[in-house]
Design a protein around this nucleic acid. Structure first.
Length: 826
RNA sequence: GCGCGAGUGGUGGAACUGGUAGACACGCAGGUCUUAGGAACCUGUGCCGUAAGGUGUGGGGGUUCGAAUCCCCCCUCGCGCACCA
C-alpha cells in the first residue's frame, strides 16, 4: 500500500472530534438573520439492528444537500431524533428477554454514534426521542387537545385485530389482509377503541394537496386513499315495518329504477330486525361464517358471490316497487352505510350476484349509439348512457339523471346528495406495553376524563413483570397504576390501559424539534414562523398513505387551534429510491444484507458516502455492487495527492485569474462549480460527482502525475481550493483536512460556496457536427461565433460530406448555430 | 383489473426545452515506471467488420431535416390500489 494514501481512519475521527469539541454544527433557532431552510429526513426507528446501507443512502446525500445550502449562505436546520416507541423495539425486547426501555436506550446510543460516522451536520442539541417522558408528555397533550376539540373519540367498532401481535392495527398497517410486520392474517373484532376523526379532515386534506410540491405519484396515492365519491344516500322503507328504513349510498342514483334488491353487510345492525323467523337460522349461520373468514379471502375479487335472503322486502321510493333484502359479504360494513342498492344491469358485482341467485336484471341505461338487450349481456354496462324505463326520467342522459333523480328524492324526503370517503377514522389504541400511555381516566360517575394537564406526562410504568402482549394491555395488570382517583369527582377511577399508535408520536416531531429545549410549551411559535414549512422532507414512498397523511392531518389540526403557523407542514417532498442487492430488496431472510462497516473500515466514511451518491439517481435508487467503490476511492486519492503536492500556507480561497491557467482548466473549473451547484439543487448527486471527476482528470492531464506545469503553487492552491470547497458537502471529513493543508482556516463547511465566472463557461471554439440526412458524417473545429452562413459553407466544403452528396440533389440545409449542420439530399 | 415508474454497452449509470447516444465510473485489453505489484500514470474499449462501411437506446408503427427523448399499439419488470357501491 502506498504511503501517500488518504489515511481515512485517523483523519475522519480527528475531524469528528474537532466538530464535537467546537460544537461546530450548533444552530441558533432564534437567529432571525437571513433565509432559513429546514431540511428534514424521517427520523430513525431504533430496532436492534445497526445502521445499514439504506440509512446511509437516506441520510448521507441529504446531508450533502444541507451542507451545500449552508455554504450558499442559508441558515440550515437539519435535526435528527428517534422514533423509539413501538413494535420493533418491543418485539426485540421480548426476544432477548430484556426490558424494552433498556433495549431502546442501548440501540439509540449505538445508532447515534453510527450516525455521527456519516459526518452529518446534525445538531444533537435538538434531538427528540419519542419514548422519553419529556417528549411523550406532548404526545399526551396532543391527544387531549384532539379530545377537547372532539377529534379524539371513543367508539365501538370493528377493528383489525392481529392474533399474532395481540393488538389492533390501523388500516395502513395491513397489506392484503395480513399485518405488515409478520405477514400473518388479521381478523375483525369488535372493540371499544380511541379514534382520531381524520375523516372530518378528508376534504381539507384533499384540498391541501394542490398547494404542495410533492411527487405526483404520492399525491395520487393520497387522493385514492382519501377516495372521495359523490353520490346520494337513499332511504328505502321496509315493507310492513313503518319504523325501519334501510339507508344506502350510491354513486349511481341514475340507476335507481333498475334496483332489483338491497344487500346488507353481515355486520349491519339492522339485520336482526329485518330477518324473518323463517330465514333466521340461515341468516345467522351465514353471518357467523362471514365474520370468521379472513379479510384477505373476503375481499378477494375472484371469489364467487355468496349471500342469503333475509325474508324482508323494501320499497323503492321512486316507483314503489317491492324488492327483496339480502345479506352478502361483498358489502363492506365500514364503507358508506353498510348497505347497497343492487343494480345488476349496471354494476358488475351486483350482476354476478343476480346471475347466481336468479334475481331480475333490469336495463335502465343504454349506450348512446346502440341498443342492447339484457339477454345478450355478458357483463354489466357501467358506462354513462341514456336513461330508459325510468318513469319521466327516461330519455335523459344518465350523467344529468344523477342530479335529477337525487333532487326528486330530496323532494320526496327519501334521500339527499352525499359525499362519501374511502378514508376511515384513525384507530389509535394499541394493547401493547411499549407506547405512549393514553392520558385518560375512566370514572363510573363522570365518564371519560382527561388527566389534568399539570399532571402530564402519565409516565409509562417501568416496573412491570410481564410486558408481553396478551390480548389486553399489559398495563392492565398493574393495579396500583390502573387504580386512581377521578380528577373530576375525586371518586375511584381507572386509567386507560392502552397505549397510542406510534404514528401519533411521529405526527408532530417536526414541530417539536424546534422546541426540544423547552419543557414549558409544546411548540415555539416564533421559531416555527421562522423555520416552517419544511423546505425539504425526505423519506420512503411507503409512508405515502400512513405517516405522510398523519403528519398533514395533525399539523392542520394544530394550525386550526393556533399551534402551527402553517397548515401544510412540507412544501417539497422527495422519496429516496431503494438500494437493492442483485436486484432484490435487502433483507435478513434473504441473507443479502450489505454491511457498511467493512467498507468504512477500508475506505473511510467519506468514500463510502460518496460511492452511495455515485451509485445512481437518488430518487430511483439502485443496485449495490461491491466493485464500483474503487472508482471513488481512486478519485479521492487522486485529489489527496494533489493536495499533498501543493500543501502550503497561502489562503486557498483567493480569487482566480483566468490568465494564470490554460483555458481548458479555467473553463472546466467554472463549469464544474456551476454544474455541481445545479445538480445539488436537484439532488442529482451522481452527476455532480462525475463533474468533479472530469475536473480532476483535466488537472492530471495538465499537471501530470507529479509536475506543476511551471505554474506558481500559490495559484494552483487557489484552484484546488475551489475544488475542495465544491467537494466539501460530499466528503466532509476529507475536505476539512484538505482545506487545512492548502492553508485554509477551519472549517471548510463554513466557507462560501465558490462562485463561477459566466464568461469562462463559453468555449471560443466549437466542434461543428455535420450530418447528411441526419447521419453524422464529419466534425469541424470552428470559432464559436461563426455565422449561420459561414457554418453552412464550411459544412458543404467538407470533403467527407461531399463524398456523401455525390450524384444527389441538395434539398435543404438545417443550421443550428454553435452545434450542427444537417444537409438534406435525395 | 385500475394507477404510477422503469426497460440504454460485459456492469453501475449519463444525455438540458427533440440536435455528436453511451458522460463519469467499474471491468477488460495494451503500454510506461518498477525487484515486484492487487499501487500509480497513459492509451483503447457499444455491436458486426481486417477495412471502407453498416448497425445500435425492450418490440412494431408514426410525426420530424433530425427521436433514447414527442404520438399510437404491444411485450417485460418493479411499486401502489384493488368487491369502496
Amino acid at each position: 500500500m502506498s504511503e501517500d494514501r488518504y489515511p481515512s481512519n485517523q483523519i475522519e475521527s480527528y475531524w469528528r472530534q474537532q466538530w464535537d469539541k467546537d460544537n461546530a454544527f450548533r444552530v441558533d433557532l432564534d437567529d432571525d438573520e437571513g433565509e432559513h431552510k429546514y431540511v428534514l429526513v424521517m427520523f430513525s426507528y431504533p430496532s436492534a439492528a445497526k445502521l445499514h446501507i439504506g440509512h446511509w443512502w437516506n441520510y448521507g446525500p441529504i446531508d450533502t444537500h444541507a451542507r451545500y445550502l449552508r455554504m450558499k449562505g442559508y441558515k440550515v436546520f437539519e435535526p435528527m431524533g428517534f422514533d423509539s416507541f413501538g413494535l420493533p423495539a418491543e418485539n426485540f425486547a421480548i426476544k432477548v428477554g430484556t426490558h424494552p426501555r433498556t433495549v431502546t436506550e442501548e440501540s439509540i446510543s449505538y445508532i447515534r454514534e453510527q450516525l455521527k460516522q456519516i459526518g452529518a451536520m446534525y445538531d444533537w442539541n435538538w434531538e427528540v426521542v419519542t419514548s422519553h417522558p419529556n417528549y411523550y408528555k406532548w404526545t399526551q397533550w396532543l391527544f387531549q387537545q384532539l379530545f377537547k376539540h372532539g377529534i379524539a373519540v371513543q367508539k365501538d367498532g370493528l377493528v383489525n385485530w392481529s392474533p399474532t401481535l395481540q393488538t389492533v392495527l390501523a388500516n395502513e398497517q395491513i397489506i392484503n389482509g395480513m399485518d405488515e410486520r409478520t405477514g400473518n392474517p388479521v381478523i375483525q373484532k369488535k372493540m371499544t377503541q380511541w379514534y382520531f376523526r381524520i375523516t372530518e379532515y378528508a376534504e381539507k386534506l384533499l384540498g391541501g394537496l394542490k398547494e404542495i410540491d410533492w411527487p405526483e405519484s404520492t399525491i395520487k396515492r393520497q387522493e385514492n386513499w382519501i377516495g372521495r365519491s359523490e353520490g346520494a344516500s337513499i332511504e328505502f322503507k321496509v315493507k310492513g315495518d313503518e319504523e325501519t328504513k334501510v339507508e344506502v349510498f350510491t354513486t349511481r342514483p341514475d340507476t335507481l329504477f333498475g334496483v332489483s334488491y338491497l344487500t346488507l353487510a353481515p355486520e349491519n345492525e339492522l339485520l336482526e330486525r329485518l330477518t324473518s323467523i323463517r330465514q333466521g337460522p340461515e341468516v345467522r349461520e351465514y353471518c357467523e361464517r362471514a365474520m370468521r373468514i379472513s379479510e384477505v379471502d373476503r375481499s378477494s375479487t375472484t371469489r364467487e358471490k355468496t349471500g342469503v335472503f333475509t325474508g324482508s322486502y323494501a320499497i323503492n321510493p321512486v316507483n314503489d316497487e317491492v324488492i327483496p333484502i339480502w345479506v352478502s359479504d361483498y358489502v363492506l360494513a365500514s364503507y358508506g352505510t353498510g348497505a347497497v342498492m343492487a343494480v345488476p344491469a349496471h354494476d358488475q358485482r351486483d350482476y354476478e350476484f343476480a346471475l347466481k341467485f336468479k334475481l331480475p336484471i333490469k336495463l335502465v341505461i343504454r349506450p348512446i349509439d346502440q341498443l342492447i338487450d339484457v339477454e345478450d349481456m355478458t357483463e354489466a354496462f357501467t358506462e354513462p348512457g341514456i336513461m330508459r324505463e325510468s318513469g319521466d326520467f327516461s330519455g335523459i342522459m344518465s350523467e344529468a339523471g344523477k342530479k335529477a333523480v337525487t333532487d326528486r328524492l330530496e323532494s320526496l324526503n327519501a334521500g339527499k346528495h352525499t359525499v362519501t370517503y374511502r378514508l376511515r377514522d384513525w384507530s389509535v389504541s394499541r394493547q401493547r406495553y411499549w407506547g405512549c400511555p393514553i392520558p385518560m381516566i375512566h370514572c363510573e360517575k363522570c365518564g371519560v376524563v382527561p388527566v389534568p394537564e399539570d399532571q402530564l406526562p402519565v409516565e409509562l410504568p417501568h416496573e412491570i413483570k410481564d410486558f408481553r402482549p396478551k390480548g389486553t394491555s399489559p398495563l392492565g395488570a398493574l393495579e396500583d397504576w390502573v387504580n386512581t382517583v377521578c380528577p373530576n369527582c375525586g371518586g375511584p377511577a381507572k386509567r386507560d390501559t392502552d397505549t397510542m399508535d406510534t404514528f401519533v408520536c411521529s405526527s408532530f416531531y417536526h414541530l417539536r424539534y424546534l422546541a426540544a429545549d423547552r419543557d414549558d410549551v409544546p411548540f415555539d411559535m416564533e421559531r416555527m414562523k421562522r423555520w416552517l414549512p419544511i423546505s425539504l422532507y425526505v423519506g420512503g414512498p411507503e409512508h405515502g398513505t400512513g405517516h405522510l397523511i398523519y403528519i398533514r392531518f395533525i399539523t392542520r389540526f394544530l394550525h386550526e387551534i393556533g399551534w402551527s403557523p402553517v397548515a401544510e407542514p412540507v412544501t417539497r417532498l422527495v422519496h429516496q429510491g431503494i438500494i437493492t442487492k442483485d436486484g432484490m430488496r435487502m433483507s435478513k431472510s434473504k441473507g443479502n444484507v450489505v454491511n457498511p462497516d467493512a467498507f468504512i473500515e477500508r475506505y473511510g466514511s467519506d468514500v463510502f458516502r460518496m460511492y452511495m451518491m455515485f451509485t445512481g439517481d437518488y430518487r430511483m435508487g439502485g443496485d449495490w455492487s461491491d466493485e464500483g467503490i474503487t472508482g471513488i476511492d481512486r478519485f479521492v486519492n487522486r485529489v489527496w495527492r494533489l493536495v499533498l503536492r501543493f500543501t502550503g500556507k497561502a489562503a486557498p480561497n483567493s480569487d482566480l485569474n483566468a490568465k494564470d491557467y490554460p483555458e481548458i482548466i479555467f473553463r472546466t473549473l467554472n463549469n464544474t462549480v456551476k454544474a455541481v451547484g445545479e445538480d445539488l439543487d436537484n439532488l442529482s448527486f451522481n452527476t455532480a460527482i462525475s463533474r468533479m471527476m472530469e475536473l480532476v482528470n483535466e488537472l492530471y492531464k495538465w499537471l501530470g502525475d507529479d509536475g506543476d506545469a511551471g505554474v506558481d503553487h500559490e495559484v494552483i492552491r487557489a484552484l484546488l481550493g475551489v475544488l475542495i470547497r465544491t467537494m466539501a458537502p460530499f466528503a466532509p471529513h476529507f475536505c476539512e483536512e484538505a482545506w487545512e493543508r492548502l492553508g485554509g482556516k477551519p472549517y471548510v463547511f463554513k466557507q462560501e460556496w465558490p462562485s463561477y465566472d459566466e464568461t469562462a463557461l463559453v468555449a471560443n471554439t466549437i466542434t461543428l457536427v455535420v450530418q447528411v440526412n441526419g447521419k453524422l458524417r464529419d466534425r469541424i473545429e470552428a470559432p464559436a461565433d461563426t455565422s449561420r452562413e459561414d457554418l453552412e459553407k464550411m459544412a458543404l466544403a467538407s470533403k467527407r460530406v461531399q463524398g456523401y452528396m455525390e450524384g444527389k440533389t441538395l434539398r435543404k440545409v438545417v443550421v443550428v448555430p454553435g452545434k450542427l449542420v444537417n444537409i438534406v439530399v435525395s
